[in-house]
Simulated assay, not measured.
Amino acid sequence: MIFTHDGIMNITQQRPASGSSAASQPTPAIMVNDLVKRYGDNLALDYLSMQVRRGEIYGLLGPNGSGKSTAINCILGLLAYESGTIRIFGEPMTPTSYALKRRIGMVPQDVAVFNELTVEENIDYFCSLYVPHKARRRQLVEEAVQFVGLNDYRAYRPRKLSGSMLRRLNIACGVVHQPDLIFFDEPTVAVDPQSRNAILEGIRQLNKRGSTVVYTTHYMEEVERICDRVQIIDHGHQIAFGTDEELKRMVDVGERINVETPSLSTDVQARAVAIEALKQLPNVQDVAFKDDTLAVTCVQGDHNLIDVLQTLREHNIPVDHISSHSPTLNDVFLALTGTTLRD
């Protein structure tokens, strides 16, 4: 596998896609039922359930403190819990399920590498935790170095790498043993747009190769771009689940029409007239003015944009630019949790 300098990764060697056919292997990659976890009096997981199909990219979202990290640590066998069941590839997950753990990769949010080791030595060390045979390990390490585009930096120590390169090294250490199931915990934090695109494309290619992916992030656009299904949790329990389109249909977040009209910044009377006229339209729910722009929130309708534009023309309100925006997953998240994902 090659992660090229322009951010496009090509596959030069593939393994059979483990569990890629639902008909031949219908057992889910992850099955969690009624998971309960407490920290003293705090109920971190409140009968949480989830089912991740083999071969999918599964988004796990929630505000800070919602229970995402606790759930992942329980699934990985790193935390004890009060009740519930966890099965990975049909087998119970316990702290001593070493055979299962060898099939799992974890890319944490915080970069977790050894500063005393070079790029190549770091990747080899993490590979050695899963693959004892040196010849096989050399092959896997070489593939991982090429995969994340660090071939020219293999002799560098982490402190000499940029933030984006450190992220790539973190990913290589988590996936070098070619796991069947990979957890990515906010892998694109603090990276530039080009590196973010390259990382997302790399995750998609890992998925195409056969790895099931569980993905957490604070960037909703990433979820809409790569995730097959999304689970939103808050206060330790599920509040919504489905594809991004299914989630958007769950909540009537409507349509947002933005009208750039700088003249209303100084003409207070005209601004009041425009806002009142727009509020009289049957589909309009709310109108606000900020930064030279009228923000008109409407229920879904076929003629909202035309109605808004016609109303402004009737009242001689000059329009510099007008645009309509369909609901986003972030709108859904805000409606369900009362906060944005990045809060």
Rank of each mutant, 00 (worst) to 15 (best):
F89R: 09
V253R: 03
Q139S: 10
S21D: 06
L48Q: 01
D152I: 05
I306D: 14
R159Q: 13
Y156I: 00
R229W: 12
S211E: 04
E260V: 08
D180W: 03
M1W: 08
T12V: 15
I232V: 14
E56V: 06
T118V: 02
D234L: 10
V189C: 01
A190R: 14
Q238W: 01
M31R: 11
C74Y: 00
T337E: 14
S265G: 12
R159M: 10
R167V: 04
S263C: 06
E246L: 01
V107Y: 09
N330M: 01
I123N: 02
G105L: 11
K68A: 15
P327E: 06
R229P: 13
R15V: 01
D331K: 00
E143C: 07
K68F: 12
V145S: 00
R256P: 02
H325M: 09
A240T: 14
A144Y: 07
D292Y: 14
T328Y: 01
N283Q: 06
D124K: 13
R271W: 13
D291W: 06
V32I: 15
Q178G: 00
L181W: 15
L264D: 09
Y130S: 11
S24I: 05
Q51G: 09
A172F: 03
T328Q: 08
F289T: 12
T27G: 10
R103Q: 09
G236K: 11
Y81V: 00
R249K: 14
Q51S: 06
F241V: 13
T266E: 09
V213H: 14
R54A: 07
E121A: 10
A335K: 15
S69L: 05
D286G: 02
H325T: 11
T4S: 15
E121Q: 14
Q146N: 07
E260P: 00
I86V: 10
L76Q: 03
N330F: 00
V36G: 00
P132T: 15
A198W: 05
L206I: 08
A44F: 06
P318R: 09
Y153R: 10
E56L: 00
T311D: 04
V214Y: 05
I226P: 12
V332T: 06
A240V: 13
S195V: 03
M250I: 08
V111F: 02
Y125C: 04
T94M: 02
N170W: 03
Q231G: 01
D34E: 13
M165A: 00
R229S: 07
L206R: 05
V131E: 12
Q231V: 11
L181M: 13
P108H: 12
A135W: 01
Y81S: 00
I123V: 15
I203S: 05
I72N: 01
D286H: 13
M250H: 04
E143K: 15
M106T: 07
R137S: 15
V107K: 10
V253Q: 11
A155T: 07
N316Q: 13
S324H: 02
A112K: 02
L305T: 02
I104G: 06
V189N: 08
H5T: 12
I88S: 03
H133N: 15
E314C: 12
D331Q: 04
Y215V: 10
D34S: 08
S97H: 10
K248V: 04
E143W: 09
S128F: 01
F289P: 08
V36Q: 05
G77C: 06
D46K: 01
E56Y: 02
V213F: 12
E116F: 06
R225G: 00
L166C: 12
I2M: 07
R87A: 04
E276Q: 11
A288Q: 14
